[in-house]
Nucleic acid binder design. Structure first.
Lengths: 309, 309
DNA sequence: CACCATATGCTCAAACTGAGTATAGACGAT
DNA sequence: ATCGTCTATACTCAGTTTGAGCATATGGTG
């Protein structure tokens, strides 16, 4: 593998900016919700991270709390027939607070518009049993061999929690890719010049919806072992607001008492004094995030059965 | 952020190929251990992943079990003074089996050569107390303000498990970056034209050691919630061999009985029949990985306190 | 002032985890 | 032949964590 320069490659950045407002997770879009914000890779910036941060903060007029690299997409056929040149897209996931999301002329769209099957907060959404499950079943049956049919059925069942399998909210990307492979989402049909299907969520240009699926999957996984939720919250909040925010992202409901216990025993929050009066019922205490713990503790991932030293 | 093409960008791929042989984790290198294998981004391949896989398999003459994208590095000053053009490096982490690692003319180096402070299998390595801790303390004391001094001390203590803090094996990248910032690793000193320090591990060209640190951190985290160890094992193995492999990667020892229980209750392995005679003492049963479980189960990440539906 | 809605606290059993002790099977030395 | 050593495998147990219920506090509303 000799070292030689490969030119004529276009590099751009794509940002998935997420916020939770009014109990709904939203993503910043352009082109009336059909694309994620993107732009050329600027040579001027010291680092990718800095360039993107500057650009985002300029656009939202608010500091951006959290930013991490998501994935670099470079498959040959990802842009569809639209572009001839090879494009590499480096995507980032950013988290913004409520106020930031509300302000400015930026377009924010609820991310379940694009993935209606991902919101299980009120139980399994009807689109699964009504549209997706039958379409996936048809796709499975259309396989050439019996082995392949069985394999497809199993993949569909595991991804979508069918046939008694339990729903796993972290499989967002696998689910989207399965629907793409099965020809159920519009992006795939569009590629092949066919009619667009209804009921499989709102489409985006190129592979932007796949990038959004990647972001959702990453955030759903991350929220469980790093205290990133707080990047989405206002300075003070009630525990229920915090729980609602996690639920919005995870797309499922949590056990209230256990969620509280978890927050308290991890010492991630402290009372900020005061209480909300806006809500009905007994007023809830206000809390704030203990920034100190992030520094004090190195948030470990999961555990291995360690031996004592 | 108008759409416009940015040319004159060099894109290349860097592979971190890991294997565990003889209880030591190793990484494939070129240039006598001073660089990771890399090459230009080929436009011909259908996808990044495919291109890299072909190249690696050609080189090692063995199928590559696992391959995932690691990170895309694009900071302006990462290549040092050596290169004028802006380079983007897309790095991948691949796992190879023992045989693959042993065969061929490829150079494999133990990764603890580069990170001697990361191997805690025989307790905290002497290099920490002997070299790193004093150097970090000096660096902390050299800070201009008291607040900064205290902050530096805390960072060092948490990263390296000093002052009673517990060692967290997943912080490999943070530790390397801290040592870089403190001017303790050779890469930093080299940049500034100073003498190279001894005892802080073997250096690599450009930012290759940082990329290796990223790979180690990722693998250490991943091994806990995805069954990727098996990609490093031969077809059949004893449970102790499996444990030694995990220990080699994690850089710490595990509790034997609990490790076994974990393996068995997760049904990740099944008896392959037969036993090893090579070892002293009672022969150990041979096991094989149950590939089926990967398909059957969607390996969830960590847990949230879910409510029943 | 009863009632409603939400917040917060308490309890308990099932599951999981860390870690110890005991037994089994092969080999070599006495 | 037997004993000791070494490793593998099995059993046990207490402390902790988790899932989930019930109970009580505290405000507003009719």
């Amino acid at each position: 593998m000799p070292r030689s320069a490969s030119r004529s490659v276009v590099v751009d950045l794509i940002a998935v900016l997420a916020a939770v407002t009014g109990g709904e997770p939203r993503v910043m879009t352009v082109e009336h919700g059909s694309a994620l914000p993107s732009g050329p890779f600027e040579l001027a910036h010291r680092s990718l991270q800095h360039g993107l941060r500057d650009w985002v903060e300029q656009r939202t007029h608010h500091p951006l709390g959290y930013l991490e690299q998501l994935y670099t997409f470079a498959d040959k056929d990802r842009a569809g027939a639209e572009s001839a040149a090879r494009t590499i897209s480096i995507s980032y996931l950013g988290l913004a607070r409520e106020q930031a999301a509300a302000a400015g002329a930026a377009e924010w769209h609820g991310w379940y518009e694009y993935f209606p099957w991902e919101d299980h907060r009120d139980g399994p959404p009807p689109v699964i049993a009504g549209t997706l499950a039958p379409a996936l079943a048809a796709w499975a049956e259309s396989a050439p061999s019996a082995a392949e049919r069985s394999h497809r059925r199993q993949r569909a069942a595991i991804s979508f929690g069918l046939d008694g399998a339990t729903w796993n909210e972290e499989l967002t990307l696998q689910r989207y890719e399965l629907l793409y492979e099965a020809g159920i989402v519009a992006e795939r049909l569009r590629r092949e010049g066919r009619e667009e299907a209804a009921g499989a969520g709102r489409a985006m240009i190129a592979d932007h919806r796949r990038i959004l699926a990647t972001a959702i999957a990453r955030l759903r996984a991350k929220i469980k072992y790093r205290p990133v939720v707080f990047e989405l919250m206002p300075p003070t909040f009630t525990l229920l607001q915090l729980q609602r925010c996690v639920e919005a992202i995870a797309g499922r409901t949590l056990h209230k008492q256990n969620f509280r216990r978890l927050m308290e025993q991890q010492e991630l929050v402290e009372e900020a004094g005061g209480a909300t009066t806006e809500t009905l019922g007994r007023p809830a205490k206000l809390f704030r995030f203990r920034h100190a713990v992030v520094e004090e503790r190195a948030f470990a991932g999961t555990k291995l059965p360690l031996a004592r030293s």
